[in-house]
Simulated scan of single mutants.
Amino acid sequence: MTKQWEYLLQNLGEWQGSFTRYSPQGKVLEDIQSVVSLAGLNNNQTIHQIVRRQGQEDLILEYSSVARSTLFFENGAFSQGSMQLAPFSEFGAELGLIHENRRLRLVELFDKNGKIASLTLIREHLAGTEAVENPPLQVDDLLGEWQGEAVTIYPDWRASTSYSTTLKLQLDSTGKLIQNTNFGERSITSTGTIQDAIILFDQNSQKQVQVLLLPNGASATFPLQAQLRQPLFLEVGWLITPTLRQRLIRNYDDKGAWISLTLITENRIHSHS
């Protein structure tokens, strides 16, 4: 548990950026300048956090422990959100990645009927450092073969698990996206239909998973409808350089309980030709 606090401290500093809210179809609903500062008090035993968003009242928080609904990785990447998908209650999570002087965070929210309602992309850099913005993500940026290392951590704090991953993305003759994923021993192939910045994967008529390509090399993955009694996952991806990508995945089981958080760091070993 003390390690979780140490990992949280990777996020100390003043983060300047913006909160951009999108519809599930990728339309910008709102774009607000922001400054989020996290300062350590009493020898970093307590954190004082101020969230300033243009035109809104400051949000001031102080805490000295990590909430049960939140988990951190060693590099400071984290996720906080619903512990449980339940009928007639709002559901969602924040997924945060960190690389050198930059953070990329994504909030995915569902309404009381389990329909995806809105997405907020938060792009930040440390005050006093250069604000580097990657180009908006395109399907072409992802084609090819990626090799990665995954670390999975658990809300019950049992030991983490690590394994290697591969991801192959290619277009078939009809322009559909074929995705082959290998997680350790497990292998999954899925087919997606591309429409502008949206990739729609149909597991079956009940279960549509959408990937939305966003600015700054980001991608958001979510079910269009969070179904009770079916496992689901929420994911943020970040193409940091043309050959380096991070993904963070928050997994729920078929009872709707949050069961794990996985961070994948992957390198492109072959681009499509």
Score class of each variant (00 low, 15 high):
residue 24 P to Y: 02
residue 29 L to S: 01
residue 116 I to N: 05
residue 78 F to P: 03
residue 110 F to W: 14
residue 64 S to T: 09
residue 114 G to Q: 08
residue 81 G to V: 01
residue 116 I to S: 06
residue 68 R to H: 11
residue 78 F to V: 11
residue 82 S to E: 09
residue 46 T to S: 10
residue 77 A to R: 00
residue 36 V to P: 08
residue 80 Q to W: 01
residue 60 I to P: 02
residue 56 Q to V: 09
residue 56 Q to F: 10
residue 112 K to V: 04
residue 108 E to K: 08
residue 21 R to S: 12
residue 42 N to L: 14
residue 103 R to E: 09
residue 29 L to W: 02
residue 91 F to D: 14
residue 94 E to Q: 15
residue 85 L to C: 12
residue 34 S to M: 08
residue 56 Q to I: 06
residue 104 L to R: 12
residue 27 K to C: 04
residue 116 I to E: 02
residue 28 V to E: 01
residue 86 A to R: 13
residue 43 N to E: 15
residue 31 D to Q: 14
residue 20 T to L: 05
residue 54 Q to T: 03
residue 82 S to D: 11
residue 84 Q to D: 08
residue 90 E to P: 12
residue 112 K to F: 08
residue 54 Q to R: 03
residue 46 T to F: 05
residue 38 L to T: 07
residue 58 D to S: 02
residue 45 Q to C: 05
residue 52 R to Q: 07
residue 106 L to D: 09
residue 67 A to E: 06
residue 113 N to Q: 09
residue 106 L to H: 11
residue 34 S to W: 06
residue 104 L to I: 15
residue 115 K to I: 10
residue 19 F to L: 07
residue 90 E to I: 12
residue 103 R to P: 12
residue 53 R to Y: 02
residue 72 F to E: 04
residue 54 Q to H: 00
residue 38 L to Y: 13
residue 76 G to T: 10
residue 54 Q to I: 00
residue 18 S to Y: 09
residue 41 L to G: 09
residue 45 Q to Y: 03
residue 82 S to Q: 05
residue 54 Q to A: 03
residue 66 V to C: 02
residue 83 M to V: 13
residue 43 N to W: 12
residue 100 E to P: 04
residue 82 S to I: 09
residue 58 D to A: 05
residue 115 K to G: 06
residue 26 G to R: 00
residue 60 I to H: 07
residue 86 A to K: 13
residue 65 S to F: 01
residue 78 F to N: 10
residue 85 L to P: 14
residue 23 S to M: 03
residue 108 E to T: 08
residue 89 S to I: 03
residue 74 E to N: 08
residue 19 F to T: 01
residue 39 A to M: 02
residue 21 R to T: 15
residue 49 Q to E: 11
residue 66 V to R: 03
residue 66 V to M: 00
residue 37 S to L: 08
residue 30 E to S: 11
residue 36 V to T: 13
residue 88 F to W: 15
residue 79 S to Y: 02
residue 88 F to K: 15
residue 71 L to Y: 12
residue 51 V to H: 05
residue 88 F to D: 14
residue 66 V to W: 03
residue 39 A to W: 03
residue 102 R to F: 11
residue 109 L to Q: 14
residue 117 A to N: 11
residue 63 Y to E: 13
residue 99 H to N: 14
residue 62 E to R: 06
residue 29 L to F: 05
residue 78 F to Q: 09
residue 115 K to L: 10
residue 36 V to Y: 05
residue 19 F to V: 06
residue 98 I to F: 13
residue 52 R to D: 07
residue 108 E to V: 11
residue 50 I to H: 03
residue 36 V to D: 12
residue 57 E to F: 04
residue 86 A to D: 12
residue 85 L to E: 15
residue 56 Q to Y: 11
residue 69 S to A: 05
